[in-house]
Lab assay of single mutants.
Amino acid sequence: DYFTVDMEKGAKGFGFSIRGGREYKMDLYVLRLAEDGPAIRNGRMRVGDQIIEINGESTRDMTHARAIELIKSGGRRVRLLLKR
């Protein structure tokens, strides 16, 4: 199942961390959800969800650093296409 999650940044960021990336020879996944962060309050994202797109850009062969950069580059908002 594919689904989109739109979030607005909180005081401590978006409230999730990721693992994976090209340099680890793996796809990008949601690693952790911060307690009471925007990701957990949104209610749609879960640990283990695969991140397919960040702000419309495919994560295929994307490095971990580039993924972080893209998440931050959207300013106060981020849109993720996830797969569960």
Rank of each mutant, 00 (worst) to 15 (best):
D1E: 07
D1A: 04
Y2W: 15
Y2L: 15
Y2K: 10
F3N: 06
F3L: 06
F3V: 08
F3S: 08
T4R: 07
T4Q: 06
T4W: 03
T4I: 07
T4P: 06
V5N: 02
V5E: 03
V5F: 02
V5H: 02
D6I: 03
M7H: 03
E8K: 14
K9W: 10
K9T: 15
G10C: 06
G10R: 05
A11S: 14
A11M: 05
A11D: 06
K12A: 12
K12R: 14
K12V: 08
G13E: 05
G13P: 02
G13K: 04
G13M: 02
G13N: 10
G13C: 04
G13T: 05
F14P: 11
F14A: 06
F14Y: 14
F14G: 03
G15S: 02
G15W: 01
F16D: 01
F16K: 01
F16T: 00
S17F: 08
I18A: 02
I18W: 02
I18S: 01
I18L: 14
R19K: 06
R19P: 00
G20K: 03
G20Q: 03
G20R: 01
G21M: 01
G21A: 02
G21K: 02
R22P: 04
R22F: 08
E23K: 04
Y24G: 14
Y24E: 15
K25G: 11
K25M: 07
M26I: 07
M26Q: 15
D27Y: 05
D27E: 11
L28F: 06
L28G: 00
L28V: 06
Y29E: 15
Y29F: 14
V30Q: 00
V30C: 06
V30Y: 02
V30G: 00
V30H: 00
V30E: 00
V30L: 06
V30M: 04
L31H: 14
L31I: 14
L31G: 13
L31T: 13
R32F: 07
R32T: 14
R32V: 10
L33Q: 03
A34N: 15
A34D: 14
A34T: 09
E35W: 06
D36K: 12
D36E: 15
G37R: 06
G37S: 13
G37C: 10
P38Y: 06
P38S: 13
P38V: 13
P38M: 07
P38A: 13
P38K: 09
P38Q: 14
A39V: 05
A39R: 04
A39N: 06
I40Y: 14
I40D: 14
I40G: 14
I40W: 14
R41C: 08
N42V: 08
N42T: 13
N42H: 11
G43Y: 07
G43L: 04
G43D: 13
G43H: 06
R44T: 10
R44I: 11
R44S: 14
M45I: 11
M45K: 01
M45R: 01
R46S: 13
R46P: 01
R46I: 10
V47G: 09
V47M: 06
G48K: 04
G48L: 04
G48M: 05
D49W: 01
Q50K: 13
I51P: 00
I51G: 00
I51F: 09
I51R: 00
I51C: 03
I51Y: 00
I52R: 13
I52N: 05
I52Y: 10
I52L: 10
I54G: 00
I54E: 00
N55F: 03
G56W: 03
E57C: 12
S58T: 10
T59E: 01
T59N: 02
T59G: 04
T59P: 01
R60K: 08
R60H: 08
M62G: 04
T63F: 11
H64S: 14
H64I: 07
H64Y: 10
A65Q: 10
A65L: 09
A65Y: 10
R66A: 09
A67D: 01
A67I: 03
I68N: 11
I68K: 14
E69I: 05
E69P: 01
E69L: 11
E69V: 07
E69S: 11
E69W: 07
E69G: 09
L70M: 09
I71Q: 04
I71M: 11
I71L: 13
I71E: 01
I71H: 01
K72C: 15
K72I: 07
K72P: 03
K72V: 12
S73D: 13
G74V: 08
G75E: 13
G75V: 07
G75K: 12
R76W: 07
R77G: 11
R77P: 02
V78I: 08
V78L: 11
V78W: 00
V78R: 00
R79I: 10
R79H: 15
L80W: 00
L80A: 02
L80T: 01
L80I: 08
L80H: 01
L81Q: 15
L81W: 04
L81S: 13
L82G: 02
L82D: 01
L82P: 00
L82Q: 00
L82H: 00
L82V: 08
L82E: 00
K83I: 06
K83M: 11
R84I: 02
R84E: 11
R84K: 10
R84Y: 03
